[in-house]
């Protein structure tokens, strides 16, 4: 693995190795202190982020490395109109590894062409968010002990949510997974993504989550992102299309779990947080272990 800008670029084997490494790190973090001493991570965030940036920075610091970067493109040369290519060339000469979040799709691929150090996508437009998918499946693996034979419901904005393609690509690499796609019509999975998972995942498309929830092992809920809509009215129509509350999960299996990449707005009621199904905060915490595994893999191999 040279870079990570799309889950489509990595193999099932590499994903399993990352999971095993993350498990080792989580079990015994002190063993990994200082492993990346003297290395520098550059975090280039052109779009707002809380979890992704902080957990990458935490991961690097826990491994004994250092961090530099910007979290607001307004204060960097980007504002002066500098291209991704030039910014990346510069960052690659100041650091050993780069995490890039950018509002343009394709920005990750552009970055890899101009960087002589590894580039990790921290989310590129609506395209993909590969490190998120890795921590998502890490959370799933820790709970179920497997990444195959799962019935997974994806709920909410499946069209513009960038974690969705990455998660689907990851699930598609393992055997016998079934996905149920629950979304309003206008927020269904994009054609290119459907094409990629064709014949690799059994796919069911629908709107009615309540009717199917008893069959599912987990649901992955996403926020309907206001900023993706052309006008207020079309956002209002779908914003509260799904609200997961205690009633929704009353018919769920015993070992059922709920994941969410966060931040959430209304799509999961606070009352659900206290149920054993709520795994989204643990999921966010898992981000550090998985990102430590990712930094180690990219820098030490």
């Amino acid at each position: 693995m040279e870079h990570l800008v799309s889950i489509r670029d990595i193999t099932k084997d590499e994903i399993e190795k990352l999971i095993n490494q993350a498990l080792r790190i989580e079990k015994n973090p002190s063993e990994f202190v200082g492993r990346l001493k003297g290395k520098i991570l550059a975090t280039l965030f052109y779009e707002p982020s809380t979890r992704t940036r902080l957990s990458f920075e935490s991961a690097m610091l826990r491994l004994g490395g250092n961090v530099l970067g910007f979290a607001d493109a307004k204060i960097s040369s980007v504002k002066k109109g500098e291209s991704i290519a030039d910014t990346i060339r510069m960052a690659a000469s100041y650091s050993d590894i780069i995490v890039l979040r950018h509002f343009l799709e394709g920005s990750g691929r552009v970055a890899t062409e101009f960087s002589d150090v590894p580039v990790i996508s921290g989310g590129t437009g609506i395209q993909e968010h590969p490190s998120q998918a890795l921590l998502d499946v890490y959370t799933i693996y820790k709970h179920f002990g497997r990444l195959s034979n799962l019935k997974v419901g994806l709920v909410g904005d499946l069209r513009y949510g960038r974690t969705i393609p990455s998660l689907l690509y990851t699930l598609a690499k393992f055997d016998n997974n079934v996905v149920y796609l629950f979304s309003p019509r206008e927020l269904r999975v994009r054609m290119s993504v459907m094409n990629d998972i064709q014949n690799k995942l059994e796919v069911h498309i629908g709107e009615d989550l309540d009717k199917h929830i008893d069959k599912l092992d987990l649901i992955y809920v996403t926020r309907v992102q206001k900023e993706r809509f052309p006008d207020e009215a079309s956002y209002e129509r779908v914003k509260d299309f799904y609200v997961i509350d205690k009633d929704t999960v009353s018919k769920a299996k015993d070992d059922f779990i709920i994941l969410h990449p966060l931040p959430r707005v209304n799509e999961i009621a606070y009352e659900v947080d206290k149920t054993p199904y709520a795994k989204y905060f643990e999921q966010a915490k898992n981000g550090v272990w998985m990102r430590m595994a990712l930094l180690l893999t990219l820098l030490e191999e």
């Binding site: 291209s83 991704i84 290519a85 950018h102 509002f103 343009l104 799709e105 394709g106 920005s107 691929r109 552009v110 062409e113 437009g125 609506i126």
Partner: peptide
């Protein structure tokens, strides 16, 4: 034809 594709923004690609 994606208005938010990086290739539409003066990148040397």
């Amino acid at each position: 034809n994606n208005p938010t594709c990086a290739t539409n923004y003066r990148e040397p690609v």
